[in-house]
Design a binder for these strands. Structure first.
Length: 656
RNA sequence: GCGCCCAUAGCUCAGCUGGAUAGAGCAACGGACUUCUAAUCCGUAGGUCGCAGGUUCGAAUCCUGCUGGGCGUACCA
């Protein structure tokens, strides 16, 4: 049962009497922002009045005349320029609550038109440990999968692992030249990660050495141009001044940009030059960039040594990543990495060539698309394939295997152009009604507004962050428990609570932001256990459990048998209405695939429960009837909270 | 050069695709623990929604221009 949908269904015939094309008008029915206007409001009389050439208030009256909502709403009221305000009848609210009480789905229906949805998310590069940058795709994708599934869609979660690209060329090269056997025996993944970083640094060093002089030159050139332009501006007459100053600003911003690039290169260089040992190694590996590409080519060509190394590394790398997924309770239906599609790439390119969708240009096989200057390259001039090729092969495979209605890619928004091209190219290739969507998200920034990194410039390991979150939560749990007259928890339970709270904090920090914006965190803020956090929601759940524990009789059973509610207190009514909006919140998530719609809903629910908790004693309610009603409201709140958090991938604890 | 995105309270962010007086959380200040968990609640203060035009009954939201920032842009993913 979805209140908003029901109201819209009732408005549909009333609107159809007056006009055509009612769908956009139905969209204008929504929850009221201000409770004093009622529970829901219809804003469609104003535009309709314009369309019909009638005063909006008169249109509103006609709408109401044709509207049948008596069974669940008070008589509608017209306000202001023509708003129609609706207030739900308490009897009806009560009946809905009673129904939800005995429903394991809490009144949330499954969809009438289930889709088959493939979600591509997380997709880390397995050659290095997961870092903070991976968390968004993983957590958002997991949440969307859970919500879609809960609403009755068939979901295939696919972890499109980066297990075949240049990064493996890098660790293969690193292994051949720099491996320390003892370290590799001790902890192979850590050693491989070290090798990756080392090779990466050396490549960047040589690239930097080549490019730095060019940058320096460019900086000098721009400095000169800025100087010249400064004097031009000084000498310009009033008419020309504005124009010339604009040119100046442009140059200055170019200069700043180029300086930034140069400083970035210089920093990469100094990482090597300040380390004599590394510098010596760098000298010995002048052609490392090209050599790494060759290792990758050999791997792809089936070279025995490289393939053997890859077969040795891959399970270890995947195990490492799997450990993080276990901790975070993330599960995929399939994990076909890029390597899975390797055999199919040649065929993809052939098909594109044969159908005329692609052609050769400057030695590369390119798909030229109408809206872009640069083509999408599907085979390099050296014969190697690219991620665009793999992505196309992946689409073909998914179409053949699952015939999905929808394919979601939960990937960093910086790749939006790649996906636009990919989807355009794929659309004319697969000839199907399938819808593609890039679910982009912003970058996780540090306090300096730059991508989140440690002081030394490395990315922050995800496991360290999780450990930190759990440790911090543990300290709070212990502190809290010890302050009670009688500490309640064993060390084991404290650890369990800390784990749930710590991991929840990290997931929630991510999901509660609008996915499209970049967001900034420092660990303190991310791990804050107050305010709009998972902890606050988990706390409201635990408080309900505490009430049930303290009740002498089997209060849970009692609450489940409640047949009526008392919503006399404003806090009770507000809580009740919020509970009945769970379904709206879930559907709102899927409108634009935004999990923060659900976190917002749950946060408001928790706030409303807190207000209720302050003002409405449950166990000491004046009458048995009121006590039962409040127990049942508490029960519904805790179940909604648990289910809502579960859909975010966050657990609850019985006490904290 | 071209393209995409962003600018909302001191800070971090919401704002449901055009609705009524722009909201939270931190931080600040003032209150509330003999009463079901104070990881909480109540209150105060804090805003020319980057700037300038336009569209209309009505704009943080849509359009145009400007300013400032981020990202991408032919063989990395």
């Amino acid at each position: 049962m979805n209140i908003l949908s029901q109201i819209r269904d009732r408005f549909r015939p009333a609107l159809a009497n007056l006009t055509e094309g009612v769908d956009p008008l139905l969209e204008m029915i929504r929850p009221s922002q201000d409770a004093s206007f009622g529970d829901y409001q219809a804003n469609c009389a104003m535009p309709l009045g314009k369309q019909l050439g009638l005063p909006p208030r008169e249109v509103a009256q006609r709408l109401i005349d044709g509207l049948n909502v008596d069974d669940f709403c008070d008589p509608p009221e017209i306000a202001g320029p023509g708003f129609i305000n609706l207030r739900l009848k308490s009897d009806w609210l009560i009946a809905q609550l009673v129904a939800a009480l005995s429903d394991t789905r809490l009144g949330v229906d499954t969809t009438d038109s289930p889709d088959v949805v493939v979600i591509d998310y997380s997709s880390p590069n397995v050659a290095k440990p997961m870092h903070v940058g991976h968390i968004r795709s993983t957590v958002i994708g997991d949440c969307l999968a859970r919500v879609l599934r809960h609403l009755g869609h068939q979901v295939i979660g696919d972890n499109h692992l980066g297990d075949w690209g240049t990064q493996f060329g890098m660790i293969i090269y690193g292994y051949k030249h720099f491996v320390e056997d003892a370290a590799y025996q001790e902890n192979p993944v850590m050693e491989l990660s070290r090798l990756y970083q080392r090779v990466n640094r050396l490549i960047e060093f040589h690239a930097g050495k080549r490019n730095l002089p060019l940058r320096d030159q460019k900086v000098a050139q721009l400095e000169e141009q800025v100087d010249t332009q400064l004097s031009v501006c000084r000498d310009a007459d009033e008419k020309q001044k504005k124009k010339q100053e604009k040119v100046l600003r442009k140059l200055q911003s170019q200069l700043a940009q180029t300086r930034k690039e140069r400083d970035g290169l210089a920093e990469k260089l100094s990482q090597v030059t300040t380390d004599p040992e590394l510098l010596r190694v760098a000298e010995e590996h002048q052609d490392i960039g090209e050599a790494v590409l060759q290792e990758t080519v050999r791997l792809h060509a089936g070279d025995e040594t490289n393939l053997a190394l890859w077969n040795e590394f891959l399970p270890k790398c995947r195990e490492e990543i799997q450990r993080v997924y276990e901790r975070l309770d993330i599960h995929f239906d399939v994990e076909y990495g890029e390597s899975f599609y390797h055999e199919q790439l040649a065929q993809v390119v052939d098909q594109f060539l044969e159908s005329g969708l692609a052609r050769e240009s400057e030695g590369a096989i390119c798909v030229f698309l109408e809206d872009w200057d640069a083509p999408m390259i599907i085979r390099k001039k050296d014969g190697a394939y690219l991620y665009a090729t793999t992505d196309l092969a992946t689409i073909r495979y998914r179409m053949d295997t699952w015939q999905p209605d929808l394919m979601l890619y939960v990937v960093d928004h910086r790749q939006s152009e790649h996906f636009s091209k990919l989807f355009t190219a794929a659309a004319s290739w697969v000839e199907s009604e399938v819808e593609f969507r890039h679910i982009g998200f912003g970058t996780v920034l540090g306090r300096d507004g730059r991508p989140y990194r440690t002081r030394s410039g490395d990315t922050v390991g995800l496991e360290n962050l999780l450990d930190e979150a759990v440790a911090k939560a543990h300290a709070v749990v212990v502190d809290n428990d010890q302050r009670k007259p009688e500490p309640e928890m064993s060390e084991e339970e404290r650890m369990q609570v800390a784990r749930v709270v710590g991991h929840g904090a990290i997931k929630y920090a991510d999901l509660s932001h609008n996915r499209t914006s970049d967001y900034e965190f420092d660990t303190d803020k991310m791990l804050a256990l107050e305010g709009n956090t998972a902890t606050y929601l988990q706390y409201s759940y635990a408080r309900v459990q505490s009430i049930f524990r303290r009740a002498e009789v089997d209060a849970r059973r009692q609450s489940q048998q409640v047949t009526t509610f008392d919503l006399g207190h404003a806090a009770e009514r507000a809580l009740a209405l919020q509970l009945l909006r769970f379904s709206e919140a879930l559907e709102e998530v899927l409108v634009d695939f935004r999990p923060n719609q659900l976190t917002d809903y749950l946060f408001k629910l928790a706030q409303m429960y807190s207000v209720f908790f302050e003002h409405c004693p449950v166990l000491k309610a004046e009458t048995d009837g009121l006590r039962h009603s409040r127990l049942a409201l508490s029960d519904l709140t805790s179940r909604t909270m648990q289910q809502g958090l579960a859909l975010l991938g966050i657990e609850v604890v019985e006490r904290m």
